[in-house]
């Protein structure tokens, strides 16, 4: 399977058309042996932390098989660094699978999360936002992916309407994974931020797991409400068809996301809130029963005290 491990040399890659560009770099399609993959070339390679990128590339091998397969299936994970004369120029990742592409008026477009946050327009072409059931499926898929990442201490950082893709079948795919960092480790480069997707309590050191939890709350509520700027503290105007039980629990969790850092709902709590099966309400437990006070056998000395050894005078 390509790439087979280790760094790649830029000179060995067969570059095809440029398929995208952003603030950090350009993305080129790869031809030949690299078919089915793309190369992200950094605009400012001098600012890239090559060791951090290497760690990301090697990380899937450290995961258990279930997590590794789920991670590689649902993300554009960096698969190999690309070097030019010993310097990091970018990395290789898989091409976004066909189910996450739509055909809009200007041509092929990624099915970005943002299409779930607005009323559809004719210019969107075949990118038709799903109904409530489809939205729930996408929210569940996203929460499940975040559970996996957070369980492995991976911070996404820039969670936004542009870097999560969805498919009509309800699958999700995360882009810009070179922005992910392990808790306690440095990122590959300074993390970008996205308007309306900021955590007002983000620490000055940059996003962390708690920041991710806040943004996950934004994502779930905004997808279920078809709203682009909803914030915790505001009521969630759910799309028609969201079951009452789920709406109630999502509203509670969303309000909790306004609490101080450390108290925001985590991905596991979101998974429970979105689960169709619901939860079984349990009655409060009866008071703890105390042991009976029974007569105790006399011991040598007080109960629990060790016998003393009498020593002869010196």
């Amino acid at each position: 399977m390509w790439p087979s491990g280790g760094d790649l040399r830029l000179a060995d890659l067969s570059l095809g058309a440029e398929v995208g560009s952003g603030g950090q770099g350009k993305v080129h399609e790869l031809l030949g042996a690299g078919g089915g993959h793309v190369f992200k070339e950094y605009l400012h390679p001098a600012t890239v932390n090559g060791a951090a990128l290497k760690r990301l590339v090697e990380l899937p091998a450290d995961l258990n098989q279930t997590h590794r397969e789920a991670l590689l299936r649902q993300t554009a994970w960096p698969l190999a660094r690309v070097l030019d004369r010993g310097h990091v120029r970018g990395f290789v990742m898989r091409l976004v699978p066909a189910e996450f592409w739509g055909r809009a008026a200007p041509g092929p477009k990624l099915r970005e999360l943002q299409y779930l946050l607005y009323e559809p327009k004719a210019l969107w072409g075949d990118i038709a936002p799903p109904d409530a059931a489809g939205r729930l499926e996408i929210a569940r898929g996203t929460v499940s992916l975040f559970r996996l990442l957070h369980a492995n201490r991976l911070v996404v950082g820039d969670v936004s309407m542009s870097n999560l893709l969805w498919s009509p079948a309800g699958n999700v795919f995360l882009l810009d994974c070179d922005g992910i960092r392990e808790t306690g480790e440095k990122p590959v480069m300074a993390q970008p931020s996205t308007p309306d997707w900021d955590d007002p309590e983000q620490p000055s050191t940059g996003p962390d797991l708690d920041t991710d939890r806040y943004k996950l709350a934004l994502l779930v509520a905004r997808v279920l409400a078809k709203a682009s700027a909803l914030r915790p503290g505001q009521p969630v105007p759910f799309a028609a068809g969201v079951p009452d039980r789920i709406a109630g629990e999502v509203s509670e969790r969303f309000a909790e996301a306004a609490r101080p850092r450390g108290l925001r709902p985590d991905a596991a709590q979101w998974a429970r809130a979105l689960d169709e099966r619901g939860v079984i309400e349990l009655d409060p437990l009866p008071p703890v029963r105390r042991p009976p006070s029974l007569p105790q056998a006399p011991l040598d000395g007080r109960r629990g005290q060790r016998p003393m050894i009498q020593l002869p005078p010196a």
């Binding site: 809009a104 008026a105 200007p106 477009k109 943002q114 299409y115 946050l117 607005y118 327009k121 210019l123 969107w124 072409g125 309407m161 542009s162 308007p195 682009s228």
Partner: peptide
């Protein structure tokens, strides 16, 4: 082109 590119990008059109 300008109309298609901006108009088909909901966040950009909104902002």
């Amino acid at each position: 082109d300008l109309h298609r590119e901006i108009g088909s990008n909901p966040v950009v059109a909104d902002k």
